[in-house]
Nucleic acid binder design. Structure first.
Length: 254
DNA sequence: ATGGCTCGTGTAACGAGA
């Protein structure tokens, strides 16, 4: 099973790129973040024609997540329990016994902001929910835009980013907490030393200078990790015209 | 030293992103 995640920064703008990418990368499951469109706008017919089922949680202007899958799915959950959250950032679906989770973890603004407090509150609710899922679903894959760089290797300028909610020591610890739960970071597991990013700033020629961050992740439970055959960050769409600032990440499980 | 781009909204700038 091939599972991918991609923050598209507006599905309205990026739809043709998503279709083009799927045509050359026919993954089984694709998790999308930052749809930036209402539920009525979601192009379900486009994905149906490509042979995909789809589930989505949208809202006006910001956020929004979707999961599309070749095989049917069930046990759909569209919000985190115990968190009153008007922002659409969470979606989970079970496909062929694999529990797939699509996350758009809050950015966090500045360290002293309400947005950072919200990010921490959101993560606490996520961890609480994941503890339950972990026991319930041996085959569990948690994908998405984490807005957390796990280690210095994943950050172009670690000292600068340490002063932000993307790479603060506290957020590095949060990521380690997820690994301590038993999850493996698919990319880092297969490529312990490689410097590869999933996001590059639109400004400053971030992509051409390869100044970026690795903040989009696929985490897998031990039962899934034992079958992990590859994990690739696909930089090609980042070089297209009007690209998303994020690259897709693809994990293949045997 | 600052902001440098790309979104949506709505039709001008502005907030948000990371």
């Amino acid at each position: 099973m091939k599972i991918a995640t991609w923050n598209v920064n507006s599905l309205t703008v990026r739809l043709q790129q998503v279709v083009a990418w799927l045509n050359s990368n026919p993954v089984d499951v694709l998790c999308l973040q930052e749809l930036k469109q209402t539920d009525e706008m979601f192009p379900k017919e486009v994905f149906q024609k490509l042979g995909y089922h789809a589930w989505w949680r949208g809202q006006k202007t910001y956020n929004g997540v979707a999961i599309i899958s070749r095989l049917p799915g069930d046990e759909v959950v569209g919000e985190l329990p115990h968190l009153e959250d008007p922002q659409r950032r969470f979606l989970a679906v079970t496909v062929q016994g694999v529990r797939v989770v699509c996350l758009y973890i809050p950015n966090g603004g500045e360290l002293d902001s309400d947005k950072y407090a919200y990010k921490k509150q959101w993560l606490a609710a996520l961890f609480q929910w994941l503890e339950g899922e972990y026991g319930r679903y041996p085959r569990l894959v948690v994908t998405g835009d984490y807005n957390i760089a796990p280690a210095a290797l994943d950050v172009h300028k670690p000292a600068m980013w340490e002063a932000t909610p993307i790479f603060s020591p506290e957020m590095q610890e949060s990521f380690r907490q997820m690994l301590a739960m038993g999850f493996g970071d698919c990319f880092r597991t297969l490529h312990p030393q490689e410097v590869q990013y999933t996001w590059w700033d639109y400004r400053l020629g971030g992509f051409s200078r390869n100044q970026g961050l690795r903040i989009d992740h696929i985490l897998a439970s031990p039962a899934m990790l034992s079958g992990l055959a590859s994990c690739v960050i696909d930089k090609i769409p980042r070089g297209w015209d009007r690209p998303s600032d994020h690259a897709p990440v693809v994990a293949t499980f045997e």
